[in-house]
Design a protein around this nucleic acid. Structure first.
Lengths: 348, 348
DNA sequence: ATTAAGGTCTTAATTGATTAAGGAGGTTTC
DNA sequence: GAAACCTCCTTAATCAATTAAGACCTTAAT
């Protein structure tokens, strides 16, 4: 019961290895009788079909797209935004008949480095912090690569939204409604697991480019409206969950003076803020306005949010990756839009 | 700028190909000076590192697990249950430093068959209908394989729950509360996209084994309680979404006589039933009781549901797949449990 | 001086296929 | 009867690495 290869079958049938290969991958090159004979013998010997790796090597094509997320895999799908993006990407992959290889991030000292050994034709990098070692490994592979959301890598295609503009749009909305006491809750700024108040210095030092930009949009809109940013309570979360949002909500809504509007950078967080408001007996939007981000979990709860085309972004990334010739290093900025629902209103 | 391989570098440095290989994958076999020299030249020539496919071929190890879902990829993650399972599986994969190759199902006539060409060490099959061609392709690869939920394949490990018992538990709960007019809404029984009323014959002909079993559990509990199953309104959905649940809810809650309890096989569907009840001015649980399944989206809404250990199931599947020697063909049945919340109560 | 032991590099076999080019043999065409 | 043309199969190069075993040189121990 040693390993059965094309050669084993060839020897048994008394033909050359090439003939057996044709039997499997180019039936028209063979007489029907011989082909049947070969398949029969293959079956008898328990042949598992042409070895996928060998075929891939010879053909120079892996039939898979590599995908790198910032979060450890188990948490990557906690955010509906990620799920939407993934659906778009998967649709493109499915269309082309290629698989999606989800890679674990390098982790501790291990002898096999997932990125280096990934059998893929191209890489899609999503939301990596500045300077993350995985990015260097991806670049070293010299395969086509597109980045989604962050970080922008000159010379490679980029797909995302105009983060500062989107942030400014969200903040501008509540400012226009007349709010002057704003609070902010954000997740995904830093990688160090810290949760709690963040001063402007720490905010600006965030290694995640997209979130840094989004936050800068909040700030610029506030400053333009005459607010002192240093006086804006800013609560940072390490996990994007409803429970984390609730924690931030408790902190922000107990601040003195209490904010009349809270900005968040995910809908999931915003839902948690709503929970906190309920805990504290505050009405939304009468006592406090809440703005989410992504329009991923917002509709049912009546959340005002910024909608971004997550599926389209994923699909576009996929098509770029699969395009032949390889994609030009464009920067593709998708539109975003403010969706006003019932979680925001003028103060008082 | 032709392709750079180990040989290119070897020629340039004036050493053998093996030496260059050692420089990359076994540094201790080489003097420091030469190694540095080689890496330098490699860099100069723009070498992308040892070719992953060739390495994989030679080592006989792909570093990836293949994953097959029944649904087309873009919809696979619509159900939080799937997400939970995936998180568990991903955790196991991450631990082992291997990737997760999500495969598109064979689809139309294409020259590359994704399963056949997938560079993986093992397959995880999730929720495939009886007789799905992809299963045959997976089996032909003769790699380790585990099935999750369905279909049971003799001779291969299986991970799931006791579906008939879980179904019976859900139905038994409302029957014990005293309900006698039960309605059922289920998704994922058939593959043909039909939505609408399903008679018992069609119910029993469902190609999805797990859902068939779950339904059989509903039926047996009802029959044991003296109900006539043929008189139980049964609405079948082709998509697992809140909107689909709402549609089913409208149909069921307008039936005469109106059911006082509705069983569903996913929480997402149950949420839709709640929407429909609200639309029709019915109070839950006073006018109608609703039972979900999976405890994936149930907590916030106060849904009574059956909890199954989705993450543990995923993780166990992963560990089996990665175990060496390959896993024995056990049938691993995980526990389920009834979680009673505020969506069920005695009738009247 | 001799032998053993290390360290460093090379040789060559191996992994399992694909595919262009060519040859053998038979049939058709003029 | 020769040229032309198929059909069916073989030869041999190729894809890009890994790794056991051996060669060669230096150093250390006996």
């Amino acid at each position: 019961m040693a390993k059965v290869t094309l050669q084993t079958i060839a020897d048994r049938v008394g033909v050359s290895r090439a003939t057996v290969s044709y039997a499997f991958s180019r039936p028209d090159q063979l007489s029907d009788g011989l082909r049947r004979r070969i398949l029969e013998v293959a079956d008898e010997l328990g042949y598992a079909g042409p070895n996928a790796t060998a075929r891939s090597l010879r053909r120079g094509r892996a039939g898979a797209l590599g995908l790198l997320f910032s979060e450890t895999l188990p948490y990557a799908f906690a955010d509906p935004y990620a799920v939407g993006f993934f659906q778009g990407l998967a649709a493109a992959a499915e269309d082309a008949g290629v698989g999606l290889l989800i890679l674990p991030l390098p982790h501790g000292e291990r002898r096999t480095v997932p990125v280096r050994d990934a059998v893929v034709d191209a890489f899609c990098v999503v939301s990596l912090p500045d300077g993350h070692p995985a990015l260097a490994e991806v670049l070293a592979r010299k395969l086509p690569m597109v980045v989604v959301d962050e970080p922008y890598v000159p010379g490679h295609p980029f797909v995302g939204i105009d983060e500062p503009a989107a942030g400014a749009l969200a903040a501008g909305h509540v400012l226009e409604l007349g709010h002057r006491r704003i609070g902010v809750a954000m997740v995904g700024l830093h990688d160090d697991g810290r949760t709690g108040w963040a001063d402007p210095a720490r905010q600006r030092a965030a290694p995640f480019e997209a979130m840094r930009g989004r936050r800068a949009g909040y700030e610029s809109a506030c400053v333009a409206a005459g607010l002192d940013w240093a006086g804006v309570p800013f609560y940072e979360l390490s996990r994007n969950s409803r429970a984390a949002g609730r924690e931030a909500g408790h902190a922000l809504l107990r601040a003195e003076p209490r904010p009349t509007a809270v900005l968040t950078n995910t809908d999931v967080l915003a839902l948690g803020i709503l929970d906190a408001a309920a805990d504290l007996g505050l009405r939304v939007p009468e006592d406090v306005s809440v703005v989410g981000f992504s329009d991923s979990a917002a509709q049912e709860a009546g959340l005002t949010t910024i909608r971004q085309a997550k599926q389209e972004i994923g699909e576009k990334a996929g098509r770029l990756l699969l395009s032949d010739p390889p994609p030009a290093p464009e920067r593709l900025i998708f539109p975003h839009e403010l969706i006003v629902r019932s979680s925001t209103a003028a103060p008082h």
